[in-house]
Amino acid sequence: MSTKKALFKYILSRLTLLPIMLWIISSLVFILLRIAPGDPVDAILGTRANEFARESLRIKLGLDKPLINQYIEYLNQLIHGNLGISLNTQEPVKVIISKALPASLELAIFSILIASLVGYLIGFLGAVKPESKIDFSGRIFGIATYALPPFWAAMLIQIIFAVFLGLLPIGGRLPPGAIPPPPITGFLLLDSILDKNVEIIFSSIQHLILPSVTLGILLSGIFSRALRLNLEEVLKKDYIEAAKSRGINNSRVLVKHALPNTLLPILTITGLTVSSLVGGALLIEITFSWPGIALGLQEAINQRDYPVVQGIVVVISSLVVMISVCIDIAIAYIDPRVSY
């Protein structure tokens, strides 16, 4: 079977498995939420409401029905693309996700860009000049950023750059009082560019800098270490020696021969990181009051808002699967040796 056909078959199988996987995930979330202690009625009414008030609300929210009926109703809604209504706000879950997800994705995209830029540059320099000062510093940087607790790093960066130096805003996506542009894509920066609102463009960039740089630097350690290790290994291969012995200069050997051969694991790591960031970076979102999906999920869990938790988990899972399929396709195109 040709590689293309095998790849097509692989993608098809992954996409066929997607509904089954989503069914398993959504069922698990449904069951786990109901098993977990805590009650949405308590979260809404408080603990002091009398039995009548509790029962009335339970009926209103549909929580009085047998679990199996609730489950069938939930699946039926899901099949029809309806993620339900928030128990707490009575707002469609779709709307809640459509507001929060772009915020997380915007943060994720910028963080990945920063992480790639910083991480791969440090890793590359370290691999090119092994055991040099640059390599040594890069390794320490890699370990340090990997080991730093995100909440601590975020708070420190916030205190230094926002509170003490006052260079950048402390949190949120826009300054207090600023009117956001009409939501077209949900990505604030993109929407403000489309709205041609220069003030909001700069404000949104300002607000994006601290959280994305913090997250980016924290992630860059993994990237730098991954590139350095892979590049170092590739540089020891016979074909690199052969290229050098043919008189090809070092930079050409690096860029044309060594670097492309390290792309495979790098792409995989980048893909995995992107997948993990799709669900938001909770600690960063909390520290910088970034109204993303992870913050929304945390609040929904605290309030036992079942439909919101279920909806967010299903959407994130779908996105993660799709991203991993895309990465598989990219890997197959980059490396013809990969078979499925």
Partner: peptide
């Protein structure tokens, strides 16, 4: 009046120190 919310105490504290609020 503009009412705004931040998700944690440190950010709220920083916001008044930096005169953002």
């Amino acid at each position: 009046i503009n009412f705004i919310n931040y998700s944690n105490s440190s950010t709220l504290f920083g916001a008044i120190k930096t005169k953002e609020v």
